[in-house]
Amino acid sequence: MVKFSEDKIKEVEAIIARYPQGKQKSALIPLLHLAQEEFGGWLSAETMDYVASLLSIESIEVYEVATFYSMFNLNPVGKHVLEVCQTGPCMLKGSDDIIGYIKSKLGIGVGETTADGMFTLKTVECLGACGYAPMMQMGMHYKEHLTPAKVDEIIANCYNHK
């Protein structure tokens, strides 16, 4: 069953306290981030229903929001999600080659997950790192100035810290 720990519930309460009385729905996006981190990197219907119950709102209000924002995963993903930017400024600096390199290295296409469940490859639109292109997001952090060698290193590190 999907349920936050007591510590996380305290965090939820602190988030709700940022808004005036009765405006707890504003906590929805922060709570979805929290839920996605806690419950396997994606939002199942059960997780979304649970978040709805925490905020005393209808489940549909959660689904509406979760389906709108690109950072919320509505299907299971690998342990590490590689989100490579492909917009103009990154393209100018060779993001197409980086995406191609990751595809062949991991043997997966965009939107797919490796058989060992370690990596999901996604392409994303501009992440605000244009001066440090090409780049990708991995969890909370950006990996910038990517080269094939740097991609190798990042992937090796993931296996080493399994």
Binding site: R18, S26, I29, P30, L32, H33, F68, Y69, S70, M71, F72, V124, E125, C126
Partner: peptide
């Protein structure tokens, strides 16, 4: 501080 979730 409020985080968005990916939407230009």
């Amino acid at each position: 501080v409020q985080r968005g979730a990916g939407a230009y």
